[in-house]
Design a protein around this nucleic acid. Sequence first.
DNA 1: GCTCTAGGTTAGTGATAACTTACCGTTAGC
DNA 2: GCTAACGGTAAGTTATCACTAACCTAGAGC
Lengths: 103, 103
Amino acid sequence: MMTALGDPTRREIFERLSARPSPVGELAASLPVSRPAVSQHLRVLRDVGLVRDEPAGTRRIYSVDHAGLAVLRTYLDQFWSRSLTAFAAHAQREETEDDANSD
Amino acid sequence: MMTALGDPTRREIFERLSARPSPVGELAASLPVSRPAVSQHLRVLRDVGLVRDEPAGTRRIYSVDHAGLAVLRTYLDQFWSRSLTAFAAHAQREETEDDANSD
DNA sequence: GCTCTAGGTTAGTGATAACTTACCGTTAGC
DNA sequence: GCTAACGGTAAGTTATCACTAACCTAGAGC
């Protein structure tokens, strides 16, 4: 999922979809890559649950999947809380060492 | 920054650092890649502001940079709010179209 | 001061993946 | 029913990048 957003083009696509759901052709027209390339990127994004697609006549409207975005946010928050905990533990240890030095 | 976390090995390193600040050797010992590879990954992470390093004798202790993590969270939240706005606009449009159909 | 440890750097290599071209399926409109 | 538009798929190519091996630098301890 993070790997999916690692690619700049894919991030750009995801960014545009977050602003407005769009069909494939519209995305490809405003991007420096071909339409098949966009299709492949969308497939990757869909496979990891970051976007959804909905048929609309002969077109498919892609939009960001809020559930996937929530997973991503939760994933990041884990880093956040864990690093804070580690930092607190580090501070605690520093303090203990200071106590040891003070005698 | 997102590109930096796109690589699985780099994510693994970042994950371990979020649990506990560590020197390079310790990271390399518990990873399936060589020490220079870890050094290169750490350089990338440091350049985008996701980790900090602090000299400790002959070693360097790496730890996650909370500022960088905050930037990342803000970046994700933009997607979140924007997609919600787009979704609301979509719903509004649907409703308007329903109104148009109802007469 | 010499050695040993820890780690950053460079050059070269191999594998991954993003991209294009060509092709095929599907739906809407005449 | 035929045609055109939209889009997904496959094969092939190229470029990026992660990795290793070799080398160099700096601090610590005897």
